[in-house]
Design a protein around this nucleic acid. Structure first.
Lengths: 227, 227
DNA sequence: GTCTATAGACGGATAGAC
DNA sequence: GTCTATCCGTCTATAGAC
């Protein structure tokens, strides 16, 4: 509305995508109406249907726009690491960092909307069966395969099933961290430091996840009375 | 509908809550209409408004019904542990288990709908600011305080801020695991063993989380080329 | 306490002028 | 490519008979 006069009028598509990202994140897909969305974007009600065909197609476009480059970047990073390693298995933490860095970098990107998207993404992982979930799974599948292979090479003695669970846990920790970066202050009672310093967050997460991934099985079974 | 003749007619309230739990989990709050819900429950369209007042009030009732007992159980377990410890700090893993066990037990409870609820809960943690999030936060706050205190006593040398983040990560891993127990097979390509054995899951999670919580800072910085 | 009927608002999508 | 006007379905909530 206010932006109407400022932004070039031929970028309606982009403007819709940007606003959709934001509204989907704040209100969810169902709760975001086309009227709300087009009003916020300063475009006509009919514009979404003209440019994307339907609301569902818009949702898909929102994810594809960001996820494809993100996964490409992750895979490129993994390629680079493996090339440098000359056939040796990678350090587990290096693999973890290659995976999480792409997402975390976007947490700091408030300007281009990356931060918004990455929160939307974290949110969407926990959506039930729906078509959206299928789409996300499909977009992630090749990346997941490559990282799984890298982990298996790095940890040949960890039973596969255990590895799968731990990858699941790691993925979950990352997703939740992206989606609910605000819960920390619920726990802490106060805002922690510079709120979302991507670099610091990468350190914290990498430390936590690496320890979890490498945990010895059956260790620390401190269940019996601590006294 | 089919259940209509089977179940006693005076349990309309419960029947609505059960169905709401399920539909909210599968479709989300917005996407679940009262028509859908009342039809599935085999009750009249007006019944929800009669018994709960509004759709929003129903949502709140769904959470309160389960969350209050769950948190009470967690706190009771923590009390028991602390009583046994005679003033000594607890083992970190014992605290972790006290927290996660309540949720995980419900994963195995398919009959009474606990499994459904716990997935709904995991899903809801990543909902944005909304009133629901406020409700959940409020219901959790006292429990969170007690567990935070227990962790601080158990880990006096871990900087508070680091502890907060790690609690955040742990909470995230649990939430995601509850919400998306199916992603494992996306990673694994096949269903892992007896799908949701609560006991086995507790072992896996406790191991992973304990290692993460106790991780040494700055360790394993295997970022430089692994070669 | 349960039902039918309906009010009243809002949803996505499109036709057709410009 | 953009706009207005509108179709038509669904939504929550309620009024009032039983």
């Amino acid at each position: 509305m206010t932006l109407r006069a400022v932004r070039p009028p031929h970028e309606t598509r982009t403007r819709i995508l940007d606003v959709a990202e934001e509204l989907f994140m704040h209100h969810g897909f169902e709760a975001t109406s086309m009227r709300m969305l087009t009003a916020a974007a300063g475009v006509n009600l009919a514009a979404v249907n003209y440019h994307f065909g339907s609301k569902d197609a818009l949702v898909e476009a929102v994810f594809r726009r960001r996820l494809d480059p993100m996964n490409a970047e992750r895979l490129a990073e993994l390629d680079r690491l493996e090339a440098d390693a000359n056939g040796k298995p990678l350090a587990p933490q290096a693999i973890i960092r290659a995976f999480i860095r792409t997402s975390l970098k976007m947490v700091g990107d408030t300007r281009a909307g990356g931060r918004t998207f990455v929160r939307l993404l974290g949110r969407t992982y926990t959506e039930p069966a729906k078509p959206i979930r299928a789409l996300i799974g499909q977009l992630y599948a090749p990346t997941m395969e490559r990282f799984k292979a890298a982990f298996m090479r790095a940890l040949p003695h960890l039973p596969r099933e255990e590895l799968f669970w731990r990858m699941h846990f790691m993925f979950g920790t990352l997703s939740y961290t992206l989606a609910a970066t605000d819960t920390v202050q619920l726990i802490a009672g106060t805002k922690p430091e510079d709120r979302h310093d991507a670099r610091a967050l990468e350190e914290r997460l990498a430390t936590f996840l690496t320890a979890g991934l490498l945990a010895a099985r059956g260790e620390h079974t401190g269940v019996k009375k601590a006294a």
